[in-house]
């Protein structure tokens, strides 16, 4: 999944939604953090999303246990 405009938009919406939900639930520390550091948090979130969760097998031209 490449970093693109759709992903960025998705993540921005998610961060906004999270901040609002935290505020509505009375979790002011989290709400303030997400709102005050929105730009940085969006970058962190995009980077996290782009990281693969599973690793692929190595090239079959490498003998794994040699």
């Amino acid at each position: 999944m490449a970093d693109n405009a759709d992903l960025r938009l998705d993540v921005q919406k998610e961060v906004n939604r999270l901040a609002a939900e935290c505020k509505a639930s009375g979790f002011d520390n989290a709400a303030r953090y997400l709102a005050d550091n929105r730009t940085a948090v969006v970058e962190i979130a995009i980077k996290a999303r782009l990281e693969p969760k599973k690793r692929d097998l190595p090239s079959p031209f490498v003998y794994s246990m040699q």
């Binding site: 097998l57 079959p60 031209f61 490498v62 003998y63 794994s64 246990m65």
Partner: peptide
């Protein structure tokens, strides 16, 4: 056998 040879077969 060496398991990566299954990968050679796939290729």
């Amino acid at each position: 056998y060496q398991e990566n040879l299954e990968g050679w077969s796939q290729i």
